[in-house]
Structure formats: structure tokens, C-alpha cells
């Protein structure tokens, strides 16, 4: 899968030379494998904007380039601020190169399926479950996508911006029995 991308990417690379690439050799080598990813540094940190279907391939490429650890995976909700509402954020860390890399992938609200990266980094497991639980993103290929922080029977995904801010009544059945 990743191999296909590499061939495809480097062919198209020649047609669009205007793209800015990072100076860092390792990051540059990842960026050169894909045409569709964009280097968008933010407050001095290295960030790639990645289309959501490419997430797994880019993560695979990064892991091959020496990013050993997935430190963080989270979601931001740009409710009514952007056309594609969610944004998947993956933080990678390379211990050997002392380097961090952040991938940001916009996810529209009507298609919340993203490829899971658990096959590449086992450590993404809890993080993806958390993102599913609190934001409702669906990770294709996750071995056990269940709620992790909220009770199983909970309605809704509480960290979405359109979920109410303040408290909700106690939800379990015995609560009225206070004597």
C-alpha cells in the first residue's frame, strides 16, 4: 500500500515544484513521498497537513523514517469555523533524531471514517478509542473500538462543540433511592 503511494507521489512531484518543503532532511524525505501533504509549520513546530485517507500511509512512512513513537492522537472540533469540521491531530516523536512531527488531517462531519494507525503503533489504541468516545470519529481497522472514558450506554460524544457545556443529571438507575 505504502509502496504504491511512493511511486505515485514521486511522479507527480515533478509537476508541482512550487511546494515548500521542510529543511530537515528526514521530514523532507517524508514530504517528498506524497504530493498531497502540505508542510505548514506552526509556532516553530513541524506540521504536515494530510488528507484523511492518506493518514495511515504517511504515518507508515514516518515510522519507517525513524519516528519510533506515537506520543499523542487527538481531535479538534472546528464547529462552524471550518468547512470540514473535525481535525485529527497525530503527534509523532523520533527518539533517535530528537525530532517531533505533527500530522493534521481534516475530517468532514458527514464522513467520520479515518484509517486506524494501530497496526503501525500499538500505542494508538487507547487514543483512538478516546477520540471515538469523545468525538465520534470511526477508526477503520481498530481492533476494539469501544467507549473508553464514558459509560458504554452514554448518548452522544461529549467533547463535540454542540454537546452542552454544563452538567447533566445522574444517569444511573439507583440514583433516586437516596434515603
Amino acid at each position: 500500500m505504502a509502496g504504491d503511494q511512493i511511486v505515485e507521489g514521486s511522479e507527480e512531484q515533478a509537476e508541482t515544484p512550487a511546494r515548500t518543503l521542510p529543511d530537515q532532511a528526514i521530514l523532507r524525505s517524508i514530504a517528498e513521498q506524497f504530493t498531497d501533504i502540505e508542510w505548514a509549520p506552526s509556532t516553530g513546530q513541524d506540521v504536515f497537513m494530510v488528507p484523511k485517507d492518506l493518514v495511515r500511509d504517511v504515518v507508515q512512512a514516518a515510522s519507517e523514517a525513524g519516528f519510533e513513537m506515537l506520543v499523542d492522537l487527538t481531535v479538534t472540533d472546528y464547529f462552524r469555523r471550518r468547512s470540514s469540521r473535525f481535525e485529527l491531530v497525530i503527534n509523532l516523536l523520533s527518539i533517535q533524531h530528537e525530532l517531533r512531527l505533527r500530522l493534521r488531517a481534516p475530517v468532514p462531519v458527514d464522513d467520520v471514517r479515518v484509517p486506524s494507525v494501530v497496526p503501525i503503533y500499538s500505542g494508538a489504541n487507547f487514543y483512538e478509542r478516546e477520540a471515538f468516545d469523545l468525538f465520534g470519529l470511526i477508526f477503520d481497522g481498530h481492533p476494539d473500538l469501544t467507549r473508553i472514558l464514558m459509560p458504554d450506554e452514554w448518548d452522544g460524544h461529549p467533547l463535540r462543540k454542540d454537546y452542552g457545556m454544563s452538567s447533566v443529571p445522574v444517569q444511573f438507575k439507583g440514583s433516586h433511592q437516596v434515603k
Binding site: V71, D72, T74, T76, Y78, R81, V89, G123, F126
Partner: peptide, 22 residues
Amino acid sequence: VSDGGSRPLRMHMRTPSFANLQ
């Protein structure tokens, strides 16, 4: 994540125990 306002648009903490527990 800030949208330029006086509150964060998103505040996420990467907490070590969460990952270690896996």
C-alpha cells in the same frame, strides 16, 4: 488550539499515565 479569543478552542493534555497504562 487558539482561535484568537480569550479561551482555548481546544485544550488537550497528553498525559503519561494514560499511555503507560496501555
